[in-house]
């Protein structure tokens, strides 16, 4: 089948690729653009590992045809840090021991970023809700919830300073 062009912005940089019709965004990110921070755990929308943002909205990149992001702006885990500085969420995951094997971590952090961008002062229940589409096999979730709550506090302080 003839390949189709897709042009979109990823982490602030323009990307232009020819892809198979129906190729999933997760595969284009990982295999064509070498953005392998996005993980694929199931390819069927049930684990959340492949979570990225499109125009600020969370989506599962394993279920999103790359053609759908034509002209849009995608943020992956590689775009969460700014100028080499870790986002407070990433920092909190590291200092709070909220990652073990790391397979869920990219999706968790992107989901947490979407939450905190929209709601800078979430309750514990709101944090639980925000990550309930992301499976973690290792941590027991507790350190992840705590890391997101402490990152939220950190971001609020940074903003008011």
């Amino acid at each position: 089948m003839a390949r189709v062009p897709v042009v979109f912005t990823v982490n602030g940089t323009e990307a232009a690729e020819f892809v198979e019709p129906g190729a999933m965004l997760s595969d284009v990110l990982r295999d064509k653009l070498d953005l392998t921070g996005t993980r694929v755990g199931c390819s069927q929308g049930t684990c959340g590992a492949c979570t990225v943002m499109i125009d600020g909205e969370l989506i599962l990149s394993c279920l999103t045809p790359a053609q759908r992001v034509n002209g849009k702006s995608v943020v992956t885990i590689e775009g969460v840090a700014t100028n080499g500085e870790l986002d407070p969420i990433q920092q909190a995951f590291a200092t709070g021991f909220a990652t073990q094997c790391g397979f869920c971590t990219s999706g968790m952090i992107v989901a947490a970023k979407a939450l905190l961008d929209a709601n800078p002062d979430p309750s514990r229940d709101e944090v639980v809700d925000a990550i309930s589409g992301n499976i973690c096999r290792c941590t027991g979730y507790e350190p992840i919830i705590n890391a997101i709550l402490s990152a939220a506090a950190e971001r609020r302080v940074a903003k008011s300073a």
């Binding site: 049930t46 499976i135 979730y141 919830i145």
Partner: peptide, 17 residues
């Protein structure tokens, strides 16, 4: 056959540890 059917507790099912 998949994560929909393979049950595990989620972040909302945690006890006091």
């Amino acid at each position: 056959v998949d994560f929909n059917e393979y049950l595990m507790p989620g972040p909302g099912d945690l006890p006091e540890f």
